[in-house]
Computed example of a mutant assay.
Amino acid sequence: MKTSRRNLLKGLGLGAVAALAPSTSFSQSAEIAKFSYCLNTSTIRGQKPGLRKYIELAGEAGYDGIEVWVEDVKQYLAEGHSPPELRRLIQDNGLRVENAIGFAPWMATDEAKSQQGFKQMEAEMNMLAEIGCKRVAAPGIGAEAPVDLMLAGKKYKALLNLGRKTGVMPQLEFWGAFAPFHHLGQVLMVAAVANDPDTRLLPDVYHLFRGGSGFEGLKLIHGNAIELFHMNDYPANIPREQQQDKDRIYPGDGVAPLPGIIADLKRMGGDKVLSLELFNPVYWKNDPLEVAKTGLMKMKGAVDQVSI
Results as ranks from 00 to 15, higher is better:
residue 1 M to R: 13
residue 1 M to T: 14
residue 6 R to M: 14
residue 10 K to S: 14
residue 14 L to G: 08
residue 20 L to R: 13
residue 22 P to V: 02
residue 23 S to G: 03
residue 27 S to K: 04
residue 27 S to Q: 08
residue 29 S to Q: 08
residue 29 S to D: 14
residue 33 A to M: 10
residue 47 Q to P: 00
residue 50 G to H: 01
residue 50 G to Q: 02
residue 51 L to F: 04
residue 54 Y to P: 05
residue 58 A to Q: 10
residue 61 A to I: 04
residue 61 A to D: 02
residue 62 G to R: 07
residue 64 D to S: 13
residue 65 G to T: 00
residue 66 I to R: 09
residue 68 V to F: 12
residue 75 Q to C: 06
residue 79 E to M: 08
residue 79 E to T: 00
residue 80 G to T: 04
residue 81 H to M: 08
residue 84 P to A: 13
residue 87 R to M: 11
residue 88 R to F: 07
residue 88 R to K: 15
residue 89 L to F: 05
residue 90 I to S: 07
residue 91 Q to N: 07
residue 92 D to H: 07
residue 99 N to G: 03
residue 101 I to W: 09
residue 104 A to Q: 14
residue 104 A to V: 02
residue 105 P to K: 01
residue 107 M to W: 07
residue 108 A to C: 10
residue 109 T to D: 15
residue 111 E to I: 15
residue 112 A to R: 12
residue 116 Q to T: 11
residue 117 G to S: 01
residue 118 F to P: 05
residue 121 M to I: 12
residue 132 G to Y: 06
residue 132 G to S: 06
residue 133 C to F: 01
residue 135 R to W: 11
residue 135 R to F: 12
residue 137 A to E: 12
residue 137 A to W: 13
residue 138 A to Y: 09
residue 139 P to V: 02
residue 139 P to M: 11
residue 142 G to I: 09
residue 146 P to Y: 01
residue 147 V to H: 03
residue 148 D to V: 02
residue 148 D to W: 05
residue 151 L to V: 09
residue 151 L to G: 12
residue 153 G to M: 00
residue 155 K to C: 01
residue 157 K to S: 09
residue 158 A to Y: 05
residue 162 L to S: 10
residue 163 G to I: 04
residue 166 T to L: 03
residue 172 L to V: 09
residue 174 F to K: 00
residue 178 F to Q: 04
residue 185 G to D: 15
residue 185 G to T: 15
residue 188 L to S: 02
residue 189 M to E: 15
residue 189 M to N: 10
residue 191 A to W: 06
residue 192 A to K: 12
residue 197 P to N: 09
residue 206 Y to H: 14
residue 206 Y to M: 09
residue 207 H to P: 08
residue 207 H to D: 13
residue 207 H to V: 08
residue 209 F to T: 03
residue 211 G to T: 12
residue 213 S to F: 08
residue 218 L to S: 06
residue 218 L to Y: 07
residue 219 K to T: 08
residue 222 H to C: 05
residue 224 N to H: 14
residue 224 N to Y: 02
residue 227 E to W: 02
residue 227 E to F: 05
residue 227 E to M: 11
residue 235 P to L: 06
residue 236 A to E: 14
residue 244 Q to R: 15
residue 248 R to F: 02
residue 249 I to Q: 04
residue 252 G to E: 08
residue 253 D to Y: 12
residue 261 I to W: 00
residue 264 D to K: 09
residue 266 K to W: 00
residue 275 S to E: 03
residue 277 E to H: 03
residue 278 L to I: 05
residue 284 W to C: 05
residue 288 P to F: 10
residue 290 E to C: 04
residue 290 E to Q: 14
residue 293 K to L: 04
residue 294 T to Y: 06
residue 294 T to D: 13
residue 295 G to W: 02
residue 295 G to V: 03
residue 298 K to H: 13
residue 301 G to K: 10
residue 302 A to L: 10
residue 304 D to S: 15
residue 304 D to H: 04
residue 305 Q to N: 11
residue 305 Q to C: 06
residue 308 I to S: 12
